[in-house]
Nucleic acid binder design. Sequence first.
DNA 1: CGAAAACTTGACCAAATGGTCAAAAAAATT
DNA 2: AATTTTTTTGACCATTTGGTCAAGTTTTCG
Lengths: 238, 238
Amino acid sequence: MPKGRQAAEQGAPSIANSADVEASETGGNGGRTRQLNEDRILKAAEAVFAEAGFSGTTMQAIAVAAELPKANLHYYFGTKEGLYTALLNRVLDGWVDAFDHFQTDRDPAKAFTAYVRDKMAFTRHRPMASKVFANEIIHGAQWVALYLQTRLRDRVREKTAVINGWIEEGKMAPIDPTHLFFSLWAMTQTYADFDVQVAAVLNKPTLDDQDMDHATEHLVTLVLRACGLDRALRGQRR
Amino acid sequence: MPKGRQAAEQGAPSIANSADVEASETGGNGGRTRQLNEDRILKAAEAVFAEAGFSGTTMQAIAVAAELPKANLHYYFGTKEGLYTALLNRVLDGWVDAFDHFQTDRDPAKAFTAYVRDKMAFTRHRPMASKVFANEIIHGAQWVALYLQTRLRDRVREKTAVINGWIEEGKMAPIDPTHLFFSLWAMTQTYADFDVQVAAVLNKPTLDDQDMDHATEHLVTLVLRACGLDRALRGQRR
DNA sequence: CGAAAACTTGACCAAATGGTCAAAAAAATT
DNA sequence: AATTTTTTTGACCATTTGGTCAAGTTTTCG
């Protein structure tokens, strides 16, 4: 009895397949065949799902992208849904991390600047992940609804408290912190999700590093100003 | 030879089936059977495409939503793509209209306020349209690429000139007008496209009028402040 | 009225797609 | 080396789905 099916059967996501710290050192192979192949498949899946959405994606397309036979994907992830949820877990983990910038002891201006820069860095380096996430939410968040209502909500609550603290201390202008987060997410992710639109309006074939740097500076300026933090730091670049 | 096919064959969109000014006056029927049915189908299609995306949508689902036999859809729109592009045209038209607020003679603060409110009104009243559009862009804007590179770009260029004028006259803080538009679009549309996420974080089953009003006020404040227009109008509500 | 045009619709395909399976090849384990 | 476990894969389904069609029904119009 092969244990291929197991990866797909875990109903609700826990921490997901670690990934990232992949042991790419194991030259020829070694031991983690499974780890290696799952990573390979997930990487391919991220690109395909981002481009085509869940329904538009075929297992065959992922198989081709991963350079593996289709039956192989089913061996590792069971079903298309299994593969998709595994991918979502991977994406979600990277999504919340940037939150750690908001700590009471920190300078608000620096915190917001760092947050925007982090989000934009994520957007730039993993645009596909962003699109997969966006797609999932737009279509009703069938698989991540629970996540949104628990982990994300708690995290937001926690951080809005910090921001409210700053506001009460007069360190920044009054603003609804929760909606501020919605705005921050929207403004940063638009450069990944709607990259085609941005590029079209900018009359560029695609967004390069320079464009993204420009966008990042724009957002930092906009956000600091909106929070009444613009005159806090002067000539202080990076 | 029925002329059913014709509606779908027009390659690039022109102005699209007027709609809006539908003659719902024609009680029992009268003459515009086609007009009536196309509207009905498009309305159903908007909801289904928004929920499921292009690939996730089946003609059957639209047929059910429109309470018409599937073959009927094909009669009026030829193919699924034909129906989809017809729908896109309808959506796009409503999208650009809000631009008309930016005129040199107008007060910047009022213009931005009105723009944000308009966008939010559109978001609230036609969330499905917004989602259809978002979906199209995320998946590469296969059908609206031309539109983005021509009509939208021209419109943006035109309006950024107005904003730059305001900036040079010292009427508002310096900011990149083009990216400002990206930010405005992102912040407003997020309440339609990512409504599920917003609702989840706010711990609400769904977004009601009150939520949207709150969001609108938040955005107006944020935008005015970001543009250095917050002290321009004091106590001036609506 | 009568013919032509427009509209309706159930039945029917061919292709695409998610998923299965059994047999075989590799690896790991004893 | 023998055996057990894991991995690989081509061939093969059952279902779904976009699209077609031909036989009707209704509407338009001379």
